[in-house]
Structures are given as structure tokens and as C-alpha cells.
Computed example of a mutant assay.
Amino acid sequence: MSSTLERRSVAVGDLLVGEGPAVVIGGRVNLRAYHGQVDAYEALGEHATLVEPYSAADLPAIASRADAVVVGSSWTRDIPLVRAAAGLGLPVVVERRASASMEEWLELAGYCADAGDGRVLLCEGGRLDLGLMRAARAASGRPVLADVSSDVGLSAAAVAAGADGLVVDAAGAGGTGARLGTFTGAKAVELSKGGALEFVSAGAESRAEPAQSPAGASALRVAEEAVTVVGALLRPEAPATLPECRQAIDRVDAALATLLERRAALAGIVQRIKPVGGFAGRDFARERALVARMALRAPSLGEARLAPIMNAVIEAGLHLAEERSAR
């Protein structure tokens, strides 16, 4: 397969996965955990995002209540169930079996595309092989998800490796197993005093779902930070509308704020180490060299525009260091 295939995008509910910003998809429901002992309609409620069936009996409920169906890694060789799931008319999320090669994974994805309407996403889960995930994304042109439920700390690495979306399972994150919702963009996720999740949007629409445990909320925060900060640094975007432009700017601003906070903390350490700290200890030759190096990364701004920006950043850090030392 060619690595130069034009990237295809797949809509999962309200989210477009594969182009633009990376997204967080919360609320995967695994009906296999119930071993067929619970009615699928009851387990899914009014709506679910990603759902993995236990048997063909679950498929009617998934077709009517889910945004996408998951072909789980534990049953990718159950071809009749794979064919039936792919034929529901929903987007199909194809997980890689732990022992499967990239070629086997992509072959199964192609089979699901042929059995369905072509809307297929790849998903790497379990012990993530991020290098293989990146290679599969390039070779197939299909959107790729990383299920970070078992180790949400890998969220940033997954986005850096090219994941178009992160899947966070409420149960895997220590939650109740209820749906967490789907969201994208620079968004704060807070735990209210009553225990309900509150989504504070910085542009994109969100869909809040029932209250979750603090562990589930924490996992969402980690994943959302990864898609916002790492995504703003590494994912190319071409917004076409004013709201999309503003959302992209929000993501970049969030990344800038995070980096500025880190820079201020490092500057404070420098002030404690220097023989002469504070404004008296400024090294203007080093600052000019810093601006020159930055201009290589930001040639459209150039040294003349970057110099006052960095002077303001440096002075803000020095003021902060002096305030803290005076306490």
C-alpha cells in the first residue's frame, strides 16, 4: 500500500476523526464484559459512542444506539461476527490483535470496509505499539485511534506518534463504566462539587454525560491535555471557517500558556543558581542569541518581532521570581 494515500476522515458521532485536531472519545462500551447476561438495549441506554458486541444478538441495539461498532482484538478471527458487525452501516473501529502484524491488521480493515460502507478506523490498544500504529496510519490512509484506557499516561506519546484520536474507557480509567462523552479542542474538564463532570468549552461543542468518578475525570483531563497541547504543536490544521480558526487558535494558546508556565518555573530555578540573580543578572548577549535561534523556527516573525515578545516573557519570569523570593 502507498504511504502517500490521501488521508480519509470518518465521522464518529459529532466528531470528524482523521483531519484537523486530534480528539478524545470517551465511553467505549464492551458488551462482552456482560457475557450475554444483560440486554444490550439496557446496557447502552439511550446512546453510546463506541460499542463492542458480545454476539450477533447485540447488533440491532448497536445499530440503533451507537455511533460506531468495535471489532475487538479478542475476536477478529470470528469472521461471521466481523462481517455482521461491519454490515451495520456504522463506522467500524478495527482493533489490532496483539499478535497480528500490520499487514494482517490492514487486511482485516480492508475486509470490514468491503463488508460495510468503507468507513473504517484502526485502533491500537493494550500494550501500545506506537511505531506500528504510525506505520499503519501512513500505509493505509485510514484514521487511527489509540486506546489509552489501561495507561492514560501514554496519551501524549500517542498523539505525538500520530494518533487521530484517544479512546478513554470509563471502566478502564477507574470510572463507573457509563459514557464519558466525546469532545475536541481546548477544553477544561472539571469535577463539580456534586461529582458531575462539567465541560467548559473553548470553542468546539461538547456532549457531557452522567457523573463519573474522580479517577475517570482525571483520565479525561490527561487525554484532553495531550490532544490540546501536543496536538497544537505537531498536528497540521487547515481550518476553513471562522469558528474552526478560533478553535485552532485556542489550542495553540493553550500550548503557549503551558510552555510559558514551564519556562517561568525554569527561569525561577536559574535565578536561584546564578551568582547574581534578578534583573541585574540578565545576560543580554544570550538573550539576543536566543531570539536569533527562535527566528530560525519562526522566520515569518523574524528577530525584530520576536525580540519584544521574548523581552516581555523574560521580564515576566524575572518579576515572578522576585515576588516568590520575597515571600
Rank of each mutant, 00 (worst) to 15 (best):
A298C: 12
A255D: 10
N30Y: 02
G72M: 09
G302P: 03
G174K: 03
Q247K: 10
E46S: 13
A292L: 03
A321V: 10
V227N: 07
T258M: 15
G126L: 12
S213L: 07
G89C: 03
P21F: 04
R127S: 10
L242H: 07
D147N: 14
A254S: 14
L320Q: 15
D39L: 08
N311C: 11
A86I: 02
L128E: 11
V152L: 02
F183Y: 15
D58Q: 09
D78V: 03
D114M: 11
L108N: 05
D283F: 05
M310D: 01
V94W: 05
A223V: 10
E95W: 00
A265S: 05
G216A: 15
N30M: 00
V94S: 10
E261T: 13
L88K: 08
V71E: 14
I273C: 02
R324L: 13
V313E: 14
R179Q: 15
G175Y: 11
E42M: 04
P236M: 00
R235V: 02
W75Y: 14
G141V: 02
E205W: 06
A211W: 06
E6D: 09
E224P: 02
D39R: 12
V71P: 03
R297S: 14
V291T: 07
P214H: 13
S101W: 12
V23Q: 05
A298E: 15
I273K: 10
D114E: 15
D250R: 15
G278M: 12
G45N: 01
A43H: 07
V276R: 15
V69K: 06
V144R: 00
A11I: 06
E198L: 13
V270N: 07
V222F: 12
D283C: 00
V51Y: 12
P308Q: 07
S192L: 13
V93Q: 04
A57Y: 06
G110D: 12
F199S: 13
V93L: 06
I62N: 02
A170P: 01
G110C: 05
M133N: 01
V276I: 15
V82M: 06
S64C: 06
L256C: 13
G118V: 06
Y111P: 01
R119N: 10
L81Y: 03
F199Y: 14
V276A: 11
L242N: 04
T182A: 10
A109C: 03
A267N: 01
A160T: 10
G165F: 08
V276W: 02
A61K: 03
D250Q: 14
E209F: 12
S300D: 15
L31V: 04
D14Q: 15
S213M: 04
G125W: 11
R305S: 05
P21H: 03
G278N: 12
L256V: 13
S9K: 07
L197Q: 09
A139G: 02
V38P: 08
R77P: 00
P143I: 00
E42S: 08
L233P: 00
D67I: 05
A226G: 00
V159K: 02
A211S: 13
S192R: 14
G195I: 08
A61T: 05
A204P: 13
L5A: 09
L81Q: 00
A61C: 04
L191W: 14
R207M: 11
A48E: 06
G181V: 01
A135G: 08
E107C: 04
A161Q: 07
E209Y: 12
R235S: 02
F199E: 11
A188G: 00
A161H: 01
D147F: 05
R235E: 01
D283W: 01
R272C: 11
V270M: 08
A48L: 07
L88I: 09
